[in-house]
């Protein structure tokens, strides 16, 4: 398979990149890690005349934290996230990042790329949903912040305008006593698209047993990564017990909307239940550490 012809643009700043995107509009595609884009170019499922590479735009790479929360540059790679310490709740994200593809892919693939491709099985989407992330979208002279839960539309489709660039992912500061975990089920142990993935983040009250808030997010069981809102809500104010986790897991399985593309809906729901239970159990362990 051959790459088609295109112009390669290499802006040095986000501002320059934004101006290029404003000029090219939907004739252009952004290149970050390239692990998805290069395949799509070769398969001709996308046919841009312009490729705008972000590899010189270092201002959208890396981590920054302040009193409000944590900012992750959209060009930060899965490998860099997997190796970072994001605290007991952020483990949901580091665990997901460490299971993206293979070491070679993780060295290239970026967190922003993982989100903008809007794949139902994107590994880092469920933990970010569970962590209440929002994304910052940039165009000339303008930026907007969109909650990740409002970001995805359908497989391959999200809310971004053709000229927008995702610059960063914002994780709001979580209270003390939070813990998170990520569970992924695949057929093999690496280079695997999830059959089902689940991220859970819970926050415990000072007693260490009462759940103040819980967010459960599911991957690969709906047209987009999704929050299992009722399942999370069902845990609020309850004690963190196996029995309550089981109830929440059952609700999550009902909330899933599997399409039966790769596994039967029955199996997908069973796995949502099982993986939710496991993720909650491990999130509790993380919160209590």
């Amino acid at each position: 398979m051959l790459l088609p012809k295109f112009d390669y643009n290499a802006p040095a700043t986000l501002d320059e990149a934004c101006r290029m995107m404003a000029g090219y509009g939907d004739r252009a595609k952004l290149l970050a890690g390239g692990t998805d884009l290069l395949i799509a170019l070769k398969k001709k499922t996308v046919t841009p005349t312009q490729v705008v590479a972000l590899n010189r735009v270092d201002e959208i790479k890396g981590f920054l934290s302040d009193g409000d929360g944590l900012f992750i540059g959209a060009r930060t790679t899965a490998a860099e996230i997997a190796l970072s310490d994001l605290g007991p709740a952020g483990q949901a994200l580091t665990q997901a990042a460490s299971q993206v593809g293979s070491p070679l892919i993780r060295n290239l693939a970026t967190i922003g790329g993982n989100l903008v491709t809007a794949m139902p099985a994107a590994d880092m989407a469920p933990p970010l949903l569970a962590l209440q992330a929002s994304v910052v979208l940039q165009r000339i002279g303008e930026q907007r912040e969109v909650l990740l839960s409002d970001f995805f539309i359908s497989p391959g489709e999200q809310v971004m305008l053709p000229e927008e660039i995702m610059s960063m992912i914002v994780l709001p500061r979580l209270p003390e006593g939070c813990g998170g975990a990520f569970e992924k089920l695949g057929v093999r142990k690496a280079l695997e698209r999830s059959i089902v993935s689940v991220a859970a983040v819970i926050s415990l009250a000072d007693d260490g047993r009462t759940i103040q808030g819980a967010r459960i997010a599911l991957g690969a069981v709906a047209p987009t990564p999704m929050l299992a809102q009722e399942a999370g809500a069902a845990l609020c104010g309850r004690k963190a017990t196996a029995k309550n986790f089981a109830v929440a897991a059952e609700i999550a399985a009902r909330e899933a909307k599997p399409r039966g593309l790769r596994t039967s809906p029955v199996y997908s729901r069973l796995m949502v239940e099982q993986l939710t239970l496991r993720a909650l159990t491990r999130a509790l362990e993380a919160a209590n550490l």
Binding site: S102, V187, R188, K189, A190, L191, E192
Partner: peptide, 11 residues
């Protein structure tokens, strides 16, 4: 070889 899965080193 993404869709057709042969065993990886981890398997």
């Amino acid at each position: 070889l993404g869709e057709y899965r042969i065993a990886t080193a981890l398997d």
